[in-house]
């Protein structure tokens, strides 16, 4: 058996409310394309009132490290017990070395610790859990640390207000182990389904961010007036296409996860899907005829934190004493950039 034994999340100090997002939009948008937007419009479009932003020089690794230090302290976990670290992010520090190797040193993890990066966004947590489970079931190690951290704010142009409204920077650390631990979460991890459709490449991607068509001087000059200067690339999203993808794929994903685990729809106590956009999630919820109580939407004061949304939601549920009961089944589903999707069920 494989268990999620502990989760901790970390949010950067700086927050941005809808007013601040609009101010940045007005300052940096093309005046000829400027639209009138109110704070309430933003909330009605995505269900978000507040999001987080890392400092300009603070990377996903840095906030990831902070979530791990919090995990060690909050759950009284011995750093020497970690045998493997999986860092999942769309914002790795380098093309080499592996960011997780640097984290081994930062976090003073044992030298005998394995370390890999997984470049995944919205489905990242599902990948992390499945890889951790694989390592444990194949008896390669017993305690795997998953760090999901992203800093999408660094690749969003403030003129792209549909993106700056949604995306948020945060991190979560998760300990996955081969046995239950007293006083810890002890969520049993079931079987996984995965899906990929690379034709979604250009519907959600960060242009000028790596080896394909890297940023040149002319491109950087165009953006040097922006805070941070978009030096790490610029995110592009075709919202209608992404919305359609999610609406077509999420019901299939849920069906497949249920079939894979031989669990009936009615037996699921909670659905925790990637927190992409509150309005979109609510529309999906209604289409699937799932009650509000069973379908977690916690995006209002957090935003879309990419790979970290699912563990952040699970941690919130675990902290809220009246939510999770023993034997509860929680369906987890990630979907988005790639296109990529995947899911599993955990039992409390």
């Amino acid at each position: 058996m494989v268990y999620i034994n502990a989760i901790s999340s970390y949010f950067p100090k700086k927050t941005l409310d809808n007013k601040e997002i609009i101010e940045a939009y007005v300052k940096f948008c093309d005046p000829s394309e400027k639209k009138e937007i109110t704070e309430e419009d933003i909330f009605n479009q995505c269900g978000i009132r507040k999001r987080y932003a890392a400092e300009i020089e603070e990377t996903a690794k840095d906030i990831g490290n902070k979530s791990v230090e919090k995990l060690f302290e909050e759950w009284d976990i011995d750093r020497d017990s970690i045998e493997y670290i999986i860092f999942i992010s769309d914002a790795l520090d380098y093309k080499g070395p592996t960011t997780a190797c640097v984290m081994q040193h930062d976090l003073r993890l044992p030298e005998a610790c394995g370390a890999i990066d997984v470049l995944h966004g919205c489905t990242g947590y599902i990948y992390g859990l499945s890889l951790a489970k694989g390592l444990i079931v194949s008896e390669q190690c017993n305690n795997v640390l998953i760090v999901t951290a992203d800093t999408p704010s660094k690749v969003v142009h403030p003129a792209d207000i549909d993106l700056s409204a949604i995306f948020s920077d945060a991190a979560a650390a998760t300990l996955v182990s081969n046995q239950k631990m007293e006083g810890k979460l002890n969520f049993e991890v079931s079987n996984f389904i995965f899906g990929t459709d690379g034709k979604g490449e250009k519907n959600l991607f960060v242009e000028r961010s790596a080896t394909k068509n890297p940023a040149d001087v002319a491109w950087l000059k165009q953006h040097e007036h922006l805070p941070g200067g978009l030096k790490r690339g610029r995110m592009f999203m075709n919202s209608p296409q992404i919305f359609l993808f999610a609406l077509r794929k999420v019901p299939q994903l849920i069906d497949q996860v249920l079939n894979k685990n031989n669990v009936k729809f009615e037996k699921i106590d909670y659905f925790v899907l990637h927190q992409a956009n509150g309005k979109m999630l609510d529309f999906i919820r209604k289409r699937l005829k799932i009650s509000e109580e069973k379908f977690i939407i916690n995006i209002e004061n957090i935003g879309n934190t990419v790979s970290a949304t699912i563990p952040i939601a699970l941690k919130e549920m675990a902290d809220e004493k009246s939510v999770l009961r023993e034997k509860n089944k929680v369906l987890l589903g990630g979907f988005g950039i790639g296109y990529s999707w995947g899911g599993t069920i955990i039992t409390v």
Binding site: D41, N44, Q45, C46, S239, P240, F243, L244, L247, R248, K279, M280, F283, R287
Partner: peptide
């Protein structure tokens, strides 16, 4: 009253899933 681009997306999505017809923006 209350029309928004998000509602536009929801229209497109609803038509896509209910009628299996994709209309573009």
């Amino acid at each position: 009253e209350g029309w928004s681009s998000m509602l536009g997306l929801i229209f497109i999505a609803l038509i896509d899933t209910e009628y299996d017809v994709t209309i573009n923006g």
